[in-house]
Design a protein around this nucleic acid. Structure first.
Length: 697
RNA sequence: AGGCACGUACGUCAAUGGUAGACGGCUUCCCUUACAAGGAAGAGGUUGGGGGUUCGAGUCCCUCCGUGCCUACCA
């Protein structure tokens, strides 16, 4: 009954400090460190976590038992948008909104929620058997981590790597905040391509532009053609009359325009399209804002459209063009559309004042590390190393401000005259400004800003603590592949910048656990398998073996596999039961009278230990599991136990019987040690039943 | 649109260029005193198709088919 074992050991382990690095008293012992990818405070355990945690725990327990000073540091992420949305929804059920509550009360409310139900995942991690050092648990909004965030912000600002600017950004009309490029997902969408006619001034001719967003034409400030496009060479001195408005707009010539696409003429809306924005800057075009942050049309869009939703405006614009005979045609067209990763609302590109981080120098730090020292080392190396460096090479500035209340408020204050003071605290800002009349920037930082500092902020930085000196850089980062850019790359960059050293030597990228049909498990599809249900059904140890096997390969969920490892656990239990049935205080046996069978199992055991060590050191979890499985079942159970059975069960107490019993127990003991990192519960349960009082870990 | 990965037994997956394996399932037999969630024996593969390199290819190269993922500013 695995549950019985699962209930009794964790609390004792935790209380005894078994998971703290201090348990190793050897000051010269090598160090092994992992910082956990902090799960969202809103999250509960899913298969991906269970996989990552299993692998990290296997490595951590293995190193701890091998004599390393071992720290696996746990923690939780404040998860800005998700958490704010979750608490806002709860408020809505009470008929309140966060705006009624006000910022301060709302943030208080989030903290309250965090204290009451935000640590669910840490309870679940204990169930998993994760041997993390809870005494060092961190939360990204803790005082010391917040201090690190402000420190980094101030330093980067002072060096000019953080700046405030007015640029076109990804805006989510539902969440009412800006988003970084990485928080936007692009999805293919069946839509329409509208061919609109714009009359040429002083002529009876027109140009035709093709667009997927007719409503933005109200904000057009030019049409553009490629300078090499001979069809439109005669447009050079012309202007175009923008329908539905009284504006006259220029024709500009720009390489950006692809003559092959559509008509070769592009309408340019600098205020509502990232490409047009850039092109607008190149040609000094006006920015006419026709869509507001609620995705409704502004007064500038014209009286007929003001206040309309963007999609209603689209229909109306098309109707008007049709009425005026200016709608040339509409064709079916598939394109990709940007959506908010959290709420799936279609992103509206808007011009807005935000904070940005310049990435070029940070990027060079990471690329230099890769070129010179080949770090971090990705496992598996292909394809991740290439993907990682490619991405770095094409990196653009990072939008780091968010229009949210939950998060690290930006440490920038404004005087009445609009002067900006970036400081570590309000006091410092007041002092420097020479006035108390300051208002702090209301925005908070992107959640990933604090995550980017995780490997050193959790160890005490900017204070040079013992922990920081001892445990940085960490040994390995275990993560799913979807946050290599969002998280891994940024940790490398800040680690190099502020610690002068890589944050981790290796990055182990786990595979994805798919459902039985080979689909990704997702909340919306409801096809997820809850690891806790699997624990209940087959036990934590069997589940861990199954997950360890997955390693870095995408694998379909296969319950039969767990069942077979449940059977393995059962086999271990029964074999141990047999050994213990005949156990007696162990005696020192003279190795000279070892029989062939004893030398054989000894040899097999040693080879198993070597193979398991080698496999774990090269992240071949699958091989380690296979090796252990076959050693225990085939060599130990099927052969050795059968070979010694007669001697062990002999009725007469002879030296031969004592030696056989003793050696049997020794092999079991060693086998349990080897199995422990993978199956902590059953091995601990059995270990405690062995004679003597040796420590398992 | 580019880039990357994958395709091996009925299923899920392994195999530094060197005799294609494991677990589950399936067939037959066995309740043998640790364990039937067990034991013993067995069937099952032109490694997606085609071509090439090599003494030798699941593995390297080319191509086609199929699947998945990532990146991207084509209106």
């Amino acid at each position: 009954d695995p549950k019985q074992a699962e209930q009794h050991h964790y609390e004792r382990w935790e209380k005894s400090g078994a998971f703290a690095p201090e348990i190793n008293k050897d000051p010269d012992a090598p160090v092994f460190t992992i910082v956990i990818p902090p799960p969202n405070v809103t999250g509960s355990l899913h298969m991906g976590h269970a996989l990552q945690h299993t692998l990290m725990d296997v490595m951590t327990r293995h190193k701890r038992m091998s004599g390393f000073r071992t720290l696996w540091l746990p923690g939780v992420d404040h998860a800005g948008i998700s958490t704010q949305l979750m608490v806002s929804r709860a408020l809505k059920k009470e008929g309140k909104s966060r705006h009624e509550l006000g910022r301060e009360k709302f943030v208080e409310r989030v903290w309250q929620w965090k204290h009451e139900s935000g640590s669910q995942i840490t309870v679940q991690m204990r169930r998993e058997g994760a041997s993390v050092d809870w005494s060092r648990e961190k939360f990204t909004m803790d005082d010391d981590l917040s201090r690190a965030v402000r420190e980094v912000f101030v330093r980067l600002y002072e060096e000019g790597w953080i700046y405030r600017g007015n640029r076109i950004v990804n805006w989510c009309p539902t969440d009412q905040t800006v988003l970084s490029d990485l928080e936007v997902e692009k999805l293919p969408q069946a839509g329409k391509l509208y061919y609109l006619r714009y009359p040429i001034k002083n002529s009876d001719r027109h140009v035709t532009v093709a667009t997927t967003r007719p409503e933005t034409m109200l904000g057009d400030t030019a049409v553009a053609v490629n300078p090499t496009d001979e069809r439109y060479g005669d447009l050079k001195a012309q202007t175009v009359l923008l329908p539905l408005t009284d504006r006259e707009i220029p024709v500009v010539f720009d390489e950006y325009v692809d003559p092959e696409f559509g008509t070769g003429v592009v309408k340019i809306t600098p205020a509502h399209d990232p490409n047009d924005y850039e092109l607008g800057l190149r040609h000094n075009l006006a920015q006419v804002v026709v869509i507001d942050p609620q995705a409704k049309m502004t007064a500038e869009a014209g009286a007929a459209f003001t206040g309309l939703d963007r999609y209603a405006a689209r229909e109306k614009v098309v109707e008007e063009f049709e009425r005026l005979g200016l709608l040339e045609k509409v064709v079916e067209y598939e394109f990709s559309i940007s959506k908010c990763e959290r709420c799936k609302t279609v992103i509206e590109p808007l011009i807005s004042t935000q904070w940005f981080m310049k990435m070029d120098q940070l990027r060079d730090l990471a690329l230099g590390l890769m070129a010179n020292e080949h770090k971090p080392r990705f496992v598996p190396e292909t394809p991740y190393e290439k993907v990682y460096t490619n991405w770095l090479e094409n990196l653009r500035d990072w939008t780091i401000s968010r229009q949210l209340w939950w998060g690290h408020q930006i440490p920038a204050w404004y005087t009445k005259d609009g002067e900006v003071i970036v400081a570590r605290s309000a006091e410092e800002a007041r002092e420097r400004a020479g006035t108390t009349e300051l208002t702090q920037d209301p925005d908070v930082l992107d959640t990933w800003f604090s995550s980017a500092l995780w490997p050193f902020s959790t160890l005490g930085w900017p204070t040079e603590t013992e922990d920081l000196k001892t445990f940085y850089p960490t040994s390995v980062l275990v993560t799913a592949r979807d946050i290599i850019f969002l998280w891994v790359s940024r940790m490398v960059m800040t680690g190099m910048k502020f610690m002068g050293q890589e944050p981790f030597d290796d990055v182990f990228v786990t595979g994805t656990i798919l459902d039985v049909q080979g689909q990704r498990m997702s909340k919306t599809k409801m096809n997820g398998v809850d690891p806790l249900d699997v624990f209940d059904k087959f036990g934590v140890d069997a589940t861990r073996l199954t997950l360890a096997q997955v390693g870095s390969t995408d694998t379909r969920w296969n319950e039969k596999q767990v069942e077979s490892y449940r059977n393995f656990a059962n086999k271990i239990w029964n074999a141990a039961r047999f050994c213990l049935l005949y156990s007696e205080p162990q005696i020192d046996t003279d190795n000279t009278d070892l029989q062939l069978r004893d030398r054989w199992i000894s040899s097999r055991l040693n080879k198993t230990a070597r193979d398991v060590n080698a496999a774990l050191n090269s992240y071949e979890f699958h091989a380690a599991v296979q090796t252990l499985y076959h050693f225990f079942w085939d060599d130990f159970c099927d052969w050795y136990i059968e070979l010694v059975k007669a001697d062990v069960t002999a009725e007469e107490d002879t030296p031969q019987r004592r030696a056989a019993r003793s050696r049997l127990l020794t092999v079991l003991e060693q086998a349990l040690r080897l199995l422990h990192p993978f199956m902590p519960y059953i091995t601990e349960e059995l270990w405690l039943r062995l004679p003597g009082d040796k420590q398992l870990h």
